[in-house]
């Protein structure tokens, strides 16, 4: 084939034809990319402008709500009166989640009520039911962030999804909604919770100021090695002193070198902490 190609190239007419075809092809492709870039830029600028307008409307509504200038009913009435597309809903949910993270007490509850009483929680549920993994992840994240406990059964179903990202998000979401006791359930036993997901779980637990059951040492005896490590990390991170003795005795069942090393590091840190306390 190479020789044939070589001989063909020695034929001047064919070579010139090849070059001309190549020039036309590359020129057309270049123009295509140029047009696509310009269209994308134009769309981006239009979207930015739209976003700006939406954000102003959203902020006006949400601040009136959390500072109790308007009641939930009035804000929802305002919300229904505005013509809105999916971008508006997405931005609205993002703002509600962001405010929900930054406020405590009554304001948090008001935001949760607004989310469920408007069609926003329905919108998130539709996303959760979507066949697209991206929408599913978004839906799980929003619903769990805003404590929609009604969505728990559907989020639990997502634990069996074939996409790893959906599975992990469902796990994080469920722990966020149900707390650490969820980890005692059989479906979790099969999921390998990597370090990255573990950090997400701990981060969420911290943000939600979750309380802990009286005894979580059973997790340290799990056959799921990543779960043992997660339990150890939770005990370490939240300084659950009462579980320290059990933690120091745990880990005999671990076979993965990385898990053994990680657990040893946690134990070492706890031993140092204990010895410093006694000193």
């Amino acid at each position: 084939m190479y020789i044939y190609f070589y001989k063909a190239l020695k034929n001047t007419d064919l070579t010139l034809l090849f070059l001309i075809t190549g020039i036309i092809l590359f020129a057309l492709t270049g123009i295509l990319f140029l047009c696509a870039t310009l269209i994308k830029r134009k769309r981006k600028l239009i979207k930015q402008k739209k976003k700006q307008v939406y954000i102003e409307q959203i902020e006006a509504m949400l601040f009136a709500l959390i500072f109790e200038q308007l009641t939930i009913k009035e804000v929802i009435a305002q919300y229904w009166a505005i013509p809105k597309d999916n971008l508006f809903k997405k931005l609205m949910i993002r703002s509600v989640v962001s405010l929900h993270q930054n406020y405590t007490g009554n304001q948090k509850l008001i935001l949760e009520q607004f989310y469920t009483k408007s069609d926003l929680s329905e919108y998130s549920l539709l996303k959760l039911r979507s066949i697209w993994w991206k929408h599913k992840v978004e839906g799980i994240r929003d619903l769990s962030a805003l404590n929609v406990t009604d969505a728990i059964p559907e989020i639990r179903d997502a634990l069996g999804h074939n996409n790893e990202l959906v599975k992990k998000e469902a796990l994080i979401g469920l722990i966020s909604l149900e707390g650490i006791t969820l980890m005692n359930q059989s479906e979790i036993d099969q999921i390998d919770i990597d370090d990255w997901s573990q950090s997400c779980i701990i981060f969420n637990m911290k943000r939600k100021q979750q309380t802990f059951p009286e005894d979580i040492t059973y997790l340290l005896k799990s056959r799921n090695e990543s779960l043992v490590l997660l339990a150890a990390r939770i005990i370490d991170f939240f300084q659950l002193y009462t579980f320290y003795p059990a933690l120091l005795q745990s880990g005999m069942q671990l076979t993965t070198v990385k898990h053994q090393q990680d657990l040893a590091r946690i134990k070492e840190r706890i031993k140092t902490f204990i010895s410093n306390e006694y000193d």
Partner: peptide, 10 residues
């Protein structure tokens, strides 16, 4: 959420 990593002592 990259900030989650800030929660992991390890």
């Amino acid at each position: 959420r990259y900030n989650s990593l800030l929660a992991l002592p390890d």
